[in-house]
């Protein structure tokens, strides 16, 4: 077998060393730096894209937060205005109600006073009529002329009893 012929060993070892060193130079000076560089660049590119996407997302989130804040503010403001307007309207309504109530009460009081006075007048008239009648009846039946004051008090007593 040629593998065990030592005469070729020096040559094989020599050229092995030479070609291995040559290949090592190719790999270490050419292959590894160039491929590592391109891989590194690609990695950086992809990483940059990912970073950019992340920053865009952060911006979007910020915009959404700002929008929601604005919405909440606007809603609060609207509610506040509604509250103010409602309060004003309520105050006006109460004031008007109070005025009207007062007017109605005044008129009622006046009317009641009038009614009371009319009633008193009517009662006074009735007593006079009753006294005159009683005097006339006494004069006709008994042919007497009763004392005015006695008749008056008798009628007033009779009226008191019927009340």
């Amino acid at each position: 077998m040629p593998q065990f012929d030592p005469s070729s060993f020096p040559s094989q070892i020599f050229w092995l060393v030479v070609s291995f060193i040559a290949l090592y130079l190719v790999v270490s000076r050419l292959a590894v730096p160039r491929v590592a560089e391109v891989l590194e660049q690609r990695h950086r590119l992809v990483q940059d894209d990912i970073d950019r996407a992340a920053s865009f997302k952060a911006e979007t989130d910020q915009a959404i937060a700002a929008y929601e804040q604005a919405m909440a503010d606007a809603r609060a403001q609207a509610q506040e205005q509604i509250r103010i307007v409602t309060n004003e309207a309520k105050a006006i309504a109460e004031k008007r109600t109070a005025e009207v109530t007062k007017a109605v009460n005044d008129q009622t009081a006046q009317a009641e006073a009038r009614i009371a006075k009319a009633r008193q007048d009517a009662l006074d008239g009735l007593m006079q009529v009753a006294a005159d009648n009683a005097k006339a009846v006494v004069a006709k039946l008994a042919n007497l002329t009763p004392d005015d004051a006695a008749v008056q008090s008798a009628v007033a007593g009779a009226l008191k009893e019927t009340r």
């Binding site: 005469s7 070729s8 020096p10 040559s11 094989q12 020599f14 050229w15 070609s19 291995f20």
Partner: peptide
């Protein structure tokens, strides 16, 4: 030493 360029050395060169 016999350091002749052989067919073995040729294929090492091919590899490089």
């Amino acid at each position: 030493y016999d350091l002749s360029y052989t067919n073995s050395a040729l294929f090492m060169t091919f590899a490089v």
